[in-house]
């Protein structure tokens, strides 16, 4: 549709090559490449100050890159397709004196939706999300979370083909975070491309088909979440009744052993390249006494550590230690 396609064969909603942005000599974004397939939920993962928001702003045309090339929904000037894009900025902003329904309609009007239709859809959306009672309240009369929900609905009122959320989960309680996750999945099912930035890995892990890991303005990894995870071999966790025997020769050399009081042991080692079946056969034939065996695939956090480095991972953990689901 737009010329270029992703590795999976889907046309690209966003294509960016070598984006560079400098502020007063400081390079905030340093050669970012992105390929976001249409209909995907795409996460941009990185600690604060990594360049996520600057990248999104360049993609949306709020600022122009110093160098590089971008194409959004087939257009090189993002404002040319602004009516098909929804955007929720990191720092939320609504006119405090506006009614909720008018705020939604106004954001729609900015995207070319007639005001009357915007009001109608605004009421509809507010009803759908349990905020119908607040439709005629001024924004200043709403709680921060409710105001944020109103702004999210304003982002969607004109039925965009591409929705860009910048840190959408910050400021929302757990229930509303869950609602937003469901909403994002629903959008993707309807064919809308969703791209969001976050420093909470669990959200990206649960929602995203593809992620871009960004650290210090660079993107060391961009692609499917599974590929990121596969950067780290799966770990095998084995519990045996016997602590030793000829079967041990089947185990890889780089393992870790935790002894048990009853003579048995826990074994931790990377999944052999030959797969689990030959190992399993050797353990059974050697009468190791398998009590439990599990293969643990690496999480996105581990992948992040491996890709972006310990320092970036530590910065990520320091921002939201309680929110990282591991």
């Amino acid at each position: 549709m737009h010329g270029n396609v992703s590795a999976s064969g889907r046309p690209l909603a966003i294509e960016a090559r070598g984006l560079i942005k400098r502020f007063d000599g400081f390079t905030a974004v340093d050669g970012v490449d992105l390929s976001v397939p249409e209909g995907a939920v795409y996460g941009i993962l990185g600690p604060n100050g990594a360049g996520k928001t600057t990248t999104l702003r360049m993609l949306l045309g709020i600022i122009d890159p110093d160098e590089g090339y971008r194409r959004v929904l087939g257009a090189e000037r993002p404002h040319d397709v602004a009516h098909t894009i929804g955007y929720l900025p990191e720092e939320r902003g609504l006119y405090p004196a506006m009614k909720a329904v008018d705020a939604i309609a106004f954001v729609g009007a900015l995207r070319g939706l007639p005001l009357k239709e915007g009001r109608r859809r605004g009421r509809e959306l507010l009803e759908q999300h349990g905020l119908g009672y607040a439709a005629d309240r001024q924004i200043r009369q709403l709680s921060k979370g409710m105001a944020q929900q109103v702004q999210i609905l304003g982002t969607l009122v004109h039925k965009p083909r591409l929705v860009v959320f910048d840190e959408p989960f910050s400021g929302l309680d757990a229930i509303n975070q869950g609602k937003l996750e469901r909403m994002m999945r629903g959008l993707a099912e309807d064919g809308t491309t969703v791209i969001f930035s976050t420093h909470v890995i669990s959200h990206a892990e649960r929602l995203c088909d593809d992620v871009a890991i960004i650290a210090a303005g660079k993107v060391p990894f961009a692609g499917p979440v599974d590929v990121a995870r596969d950067r780290i071999p799966a770990q095998v966790r084995l519990e045996t009744r016997s602590g030793d025997g000829p079967w041990r020769a089947a185990l890889p050399a780089d393992l870790r052993r935790d002894g048990k009081s009853d003579g048995g042991a826990f074994w931790y080692f990377p999944l052999p390249e030959t797969g689990i079946e030959p190992l399993l056969r050797a353990l059974i034939e050697g009468e190791a006494g398998i009590l439990s065996l599990s293969i643990e695939r690496a999480g996105l956090h581990d992948a992040f550590v491996a890709i972006a480095g310990e320092a970036a991972a530590r910065a990520l953990e320091e921002e939201t230690p309680e929110a990282i689901g591991r």
Binding site: I85, Y87, P89, P96, L110
Partner: peptide, 14 residues
């Protein structure tokens, strides 16, 4: 509006 951060919503749209 710059203080309210509304300007970014406007700048992204128009």
């Amino acid at each position: 509006e710059k203080g309210n951060k509304i300007i970014e919503v406007l700048a992204a749209a128009v």
